[in-house]
Write a protein that binds this DNA or RNA. Structure first.
Lengths: 90, 90
DNA sequence: TGTTTTGTTCTTGTCAATAGAAACAAGGAT
DNA sequence: ATCCTTGTTTCTATTGACAAGAACAAAACA
């Protein structure tokens, strides 16, 4: 079992609260911030904001947004599925 | 709800397999590699290797190992608990 | 007390992700 | 056909995590 797979296994068994603490322990604050921004970009893409709107609102570069768009295109639909689920909850 | 908390919430509901795919979608390969190494450092610290042994074996700097050791000292014991559980499974 | 081992911090330089801005590509609307 | 909007890529510079090694601190042990 690879290390990253072991991590995935562990995460799948943890509570939301524990995961939150764990992420703050194993990642730096700036990494947390980067990860949050990536996630927010993906969500906004799912809500059909234009890339320029997203870049402006989140203070990120256009290239980063485009990268997020690629994830949604090329992915096995996991991320795509997730943001759709989030959207339907509102 | 913050973005990172939402991420924690989502992860807590996902299967190991989906988490693995998701991590590969939202992180770059070098980030995955970094994360894996941090996890491995934590595990080896839990097995009482010296920091110099760990640095040599994993080809990382001593300072990085020390950083891992700090996590285990200052943490709310989440990470510490995790690596202890891992150890007991063997 | 002095020595050795181990943990921690510091300095210099490297590398990957990124911002910012511009350029380019592709469609749509007029 | 010509704009105009939007998505994509490229360029340069910045930033943070990191390696390598040295220096320093602390603890164990003789």
């Amino acid at each position: 079992m690879t290390d990253i797979k072991e991590l995935a296994n562990i995460l799948s068994k943890m509570s939301e609260k524990d995961i939150l603490v764990f992420l703050h322990e194993i990642l730096t604050e700036s990494e947390i911030s980067d990860l949050s921004k990536r996630w927010r970009i993906l969500k906004m893409l799912g809500e059909n904001f234009t890339q320029r709107e997203i870049a402006n609102k989140l203070n990120v570069g256009l290239c980063k947004v485009t990268r997020g768009a690629k994830i949604l295109k090329n992915s096995n639909a996991i991320t795509l599925k997730l943001i759709k689920e989030i959207k339907n909850e509102h």
